[in-house]
Simulated assay, not measured.
Amino acid sequence: MKKGILFCGMLTLFLILSCATNPVTGKKTLALVSNDQIFPSSFQQYNTFLKENKVITGTADAKRVETVGMKIRAAAETFLKAKGNTDALKGYAWEYKLVDSKEINAWCMPGGKIVVYSGILPVTLDEAGLATVMGHEVSHALANHGQQRMSAGLLQQLGAAGVAAATGSQSAETQALIMQAYGVGSSVGGMLPFSRSHESEADEIGLKLMAIAGYNPETAVAFWQRMAAKSGGGKPAELLSTHPSDETRIANIKKQIPVAKAEAAKYGVTFK
């Protein structure tokens, strides 16, 4: 038990010293791994992915991805500069690639490496829909969600080690049951809500970015409604999902639209 108490004390001190301020939200977040460590690996994985998949170039769709990506990037720079966080994009190396895939998806790796799958274009329909997607994905990178998720994963491992230390005097069977309970509890009670909060945060920031870039944030509602129709109700229950339910997401976005418009107005961008 003493080992467990000592471990918990050391872990608490470690966590206090491992917090960082989110450059976008101003919140204190976990940062057990620095972006200086994450970015090189991210860039390498991105390049490997591009080599192993078909990148679409020279088409109107590829040009649209590039155009929207640059507008969202400019909006992000404007947004962060206004918040006094001019160093927040240090080390970013932006890229926007359209990849041939039927999958309805897009993603942004830490450091600004973006991929849009061609399968999502029929759902985006136009630049505004694409800006909704890319604004959301870029927001994950700006808010250092990759860093936070890696840190949470490390914390989960450290927590498991702490549980093992605290229950060392128990039988092997009892320890196994406790560890199993910890694994389930930390995932459902910790990691999954953590991921859902990231998705909601990326929605909120993404709306502001697309608005600053000149795209009416009201169009985001129609995009997510189209995405919901594509899912056909096949998603898992919200409690066990890394994403908010369609209903929750759309309701939250509707509430955030006036805030996004007000943010854009600060930079002279207004909508009728």
Rank of each mutant, 00 (worst) to 15 (best):
H243Q: 09
N85Q: 10
Q44D: 09
L80P: 00
D36S: 03
S118M: 07
M227V: 11
T57C: 14
I257M: 13
G112E: 12
E52I: 12
G233C: 03
G119P: 00
E137I: 01
K83V: 05
R196W: 02
F271T: 14
A251W: 07
D100R: 05
T29F: 06
N105T: 12
V188F: 12
L177H: 15
A165N: 05
D126F: 07
G69A: 08
V269W: 04
L17R: 09
G58V: 00
A88Y: 01
E247G: 02
G159Y: 07
P40W: 04
A220M: 11
A229T: 14
L121M: 02
N47A: 15
K63Q: 13
P193I: 08
Y182W: 08
P217S: 07
G159R: 01
A106M: 08
G190M: 01
A82F: 12
S200I: 08
S186M: 10
S241C: 01
Q256S: 13
I56H: 01
M1Q: 06
M134V: 12
A251G: 13
L98H: 01
Q44P: 00
T25A: 12
F223C: 03
R64D: 08
R196N: 05
K235E: 13
D246V: 07
A161N: 05
A251S: 15
D203H: 07
P110N: 04
L125Y: 06
P244G: 09
F43W: 15
A222K: 09
G69C: 08
E95W: 02
Y117P: 04
S241V: 03
K254Q: 15
S200L: 12
A211K: 03
T174Q: 15
M227Y: 04
K254C: 11
G26A: 12
D87E: 08
R149M: 12
G206K: 01
H198S: 08
P122E: 02
L32I: 04
A229V: 10
G69R: 05
Q175S: 10
D100N: 10
I178D: 08
H243R: 04
L13H: 09
D36M: 02
E204M: 09
Y96M: 15
L240H: 04
V68P: 07
